[in-house]
């Protein structure tokens, strides 16, 4: 009798906690969308930001966010996957490996503002990269690398040992086994992890304040030479991203419609992060089905 009541209470408590979590998430995203989506128009997405006039948009910031994300991912993905492969397949269980693993964990738990200030001292000042896409991307790499390493290691470890044995048993070497058996089997997990981390990178602001900067030149979307100072592709120009824009509009902007611009930017940002997360789940499941289905 008593154990039944305890059981009931535990079930109710756990369900309430789970429900509360879902409620917070729905309320938060709902509020952001309610406040912001009304102001999100095609005009808003395709007009440059204005510092003193009503009616500014987020065209450049949106571009910067995506560009920075892509550059960061180009840095992070190969490094992170290589690190994950090392930890899961090559590293022997000894002190050195333990040390490397602790490094990855510490790196993952560094506050992003610390990474940002470090980036300013090293990349911006010492390396003379200035406030730039490059500085920002490298700072974000520091911050994102451990995530990809961890995701890759976990995905590789969850591949059944029997597959590895089958490959080794055929006289296939370690690298070919990793390349042709383990990585394909771990691919859906790795891809999901990469997209989820892309969501985090997309929304990051503190690490970028002092590395990618709070301003961007007026971008000339007709000039795609990466060397022109106002080219969208120039990696050495400063670049204010969407999330940094939200911060700066809320703190320093003097335009009358600043609250609306901030709310609409937040809604766009939240929407993209949401799309990243949902597509990560969908894509992972789809690839899994596809890979075990035909080829």
């Amino acid at each position: 009798m008593k154990s039944q009541i305890t059981n009931r209470m535990a079930t109710v408590l756990i369900s309430v906690c789970a429900g509360l979590m879902a409620l917070i998430m729905i309320a938060l995203v709902g509020y952001i969308f309610y406040q912001g989506l009304g102001h999100v128009t095609w005009h808003f997405l395709t007009t440059v930001a204005s510092t003193f006039q009503v009616g500014g948009g987020i065209k450049d910031q949106l571009w910067n966010s995506f560009y920075l994300l892509i550059v960061t991912m180009i840095f992070t993905t190969p490094l992170g996957i290589a690190g994950g492969i090392y930890l899961s397949e090559y590293a022997k269980p000894n002190r050195v490996t333990g040390f490397i693993r602790s490094c990855v964990e510490v790196l993952a738990s560094l506050p992003s503002i610390v990474v940002g200030l470090f980036g300013m001292l090293v990349f911006v000042n010492t390396f003379h990269w200035g406030y730039s896409i490059l500085s920002g991307a490298v700072a974000l790499t520091i911050f994102n690398l451990p995530v990809i390493v961890r995701v890759t290691e976990d995905a590789l470890r969850s591949v059944p040992v029997a597959l590895k044995e089958a490959s080794f048993g055929l006289g296939v070497g370690q690298w070919y086994t990793i390349k042709n058996v383990l990585l394909p089997a771990a691919f859906p997990g790795i891809l999901t992890g990469i997209i989820l981390s892309a969501g985090r990178v997309f929304g990051e602001s503190a690490a970028l304040l002092f590395t990618a900067g709070l301003t961007s030149p007026d971008l000339d979307f007709k000039n795609w030479s990466p060397f022109a100072f106002d080219s969208p592709l120039n990696p050495l120009r400063s670049a204010e991203t969407l999330s940094v824009h939200i911060y700066s509009v809320n703190t320093v902007a003097i335009v009358k419609d600043a609250p609306q611009v901030a709310a609409a930017s937040a809604a766009v940002l939240a929407l993209f992060v949401l799309i990243f997360n949902l597509s990560a789940r969908g894509l992972g499941a789809w690839i899994q089905k596809r890979m075990s289905g035909k080829s």
């Binding site: 029997a162 597959l163 089958a166 080794f168 048993g169 055929l170 006289g171 296939v172 890979m291």
Partner: peptide
Amino acid sequence: EQLRHRVGMVFQKANPFP
């Protein structure tokens, strides 16, 4: 590797690649 290529192995539980 050459040894395992000459000496094949069939395991307790079938382990085809996906």
